Amino acid sequence: MSTDPTRPAVLAEHLAKEFALRHARSLKETVMWLARGRRQDLSNRFRALEDLSVRIEPGESVALVGLNGSGKSTFLKLVSGVMSPDGGSLAVNGRVAGLIEVGAGFHPDLTGRDNVYLNGAILGMSKEEIDRKFDRIVAFSEIEQFIDTEVKFYSSGMYLRLAFAVAVFTDPDIFIIDEILSVGDEPFQRKSLGRVKELSAEGKTLLVVSHDFDVVRTVCARGVWIEHGRVRRDGPIDEVIDAFRAAESAG
């Protein structure tokens, strides 16, 4: 997918997304419902996004701010194509890569080497492109010694480093990060943050979710506060974070 610089990187209009929440009933409750001739309703609906609209221009670095369950990660999954919206419209302009779930797309029975090719292909890289970048990916991950070991034997830190290394070398137009910059040891966190800043300097669009506001301030110029699946505030990152903290302090 090529990028059109005259169009927004992401344009969401009145997005809606809901999920079914299923609840188990006891055997006694089930028998009573059936005896009364009632059909069991074992689910209700949770509206993760409701009428969310936001426009993000190419090259912007945007932090999504909000409590857990506010809809931030759901929005990122829609942008990445992992999910589809139930309502509204979403236009994404360019190649999307990044980390929403650590190691998503990795197969535990394959080696690190094989998973680099598998995950790279999932993220839209050709074999030739992966061949060219393979040594840099492995060097960035710092797991050269284990690259031919099955990843089911990796520690969580090794898994993270390899997943992040593949993602940051896909040359994305839009890079999304969900709570990943605060995971791993401190040297790798600094290295990862440095690479993210490089992507920003190269004009890539960044969408970041992190509860570490000190990190967010160094990466993002703009904040979008999402609450109950809607945009509550959108503006300069310091103003959005201050408003969010004030609201949380007020209870």
Rank of each mutant, 00 (worst) to 15 (best):
6 T>D: 15
6 T>M: 15
10 V>S: 13
11 L>E: 15
19 F>C: 04
30 T>L: 12
31 V>E: 10
35 A>L: 13
38 R>P: 05
42 L>V: 07
50 E>H: 09
52 L>R: 03
53 S>N: 02
53 S>E: 05
53 S>K: 03
55 R>C: 11
59 G>E: 06
61 S>L: 08
61 S>F: 10
64 L>K: 03
64 L>I: 08
68 N>L: 04
77 K>M: 00
78 L>Q: 00
79 V>M: 10
82 V>S: 05
88 G>W: 02
98 G>L: 01
101 E>D: 04
113 R>Q: 05
113 R>K: 11
116 V>Q: 01
120 G>I: 04
123 L>E: 05
123 L>P: 05
124 G>Y: 11
127 K>T: 09
128 E>T: 08
129 E>M: 10
131 D>S: 08
132 R>C: 09
135 D>K: 04
136 R>L: 09
145 Q>D: 13
150 E>L: 12
151 V>A: 15
153 F>K: 06
154 Y>K: 01
155 S>R: 14
158 M>H: 14
161 R>I: 12
161 R>C: 14
166 V>M: 01
167 A>L: 15
174 I>K: 13
175 F>N: 02
175 F>D: 00
180 I>N: 07
181 L>G: 04
184 G>Q: 12
191 K>V: 01
195 R>K: 14
199 L>D: 05
200 S>H: 13
203 G>D: 02
208 V>M: 14
209 V>C: 00
210 S>K: 09
211 H>Q: 03
212 D>F: 11
213 F>V: 00
214 D>G: 09
219 V>C: 00
238 D>H: 05
241 I>E: 05
244 F>Y: 15
245 R>V: 11
251 G>K: 11
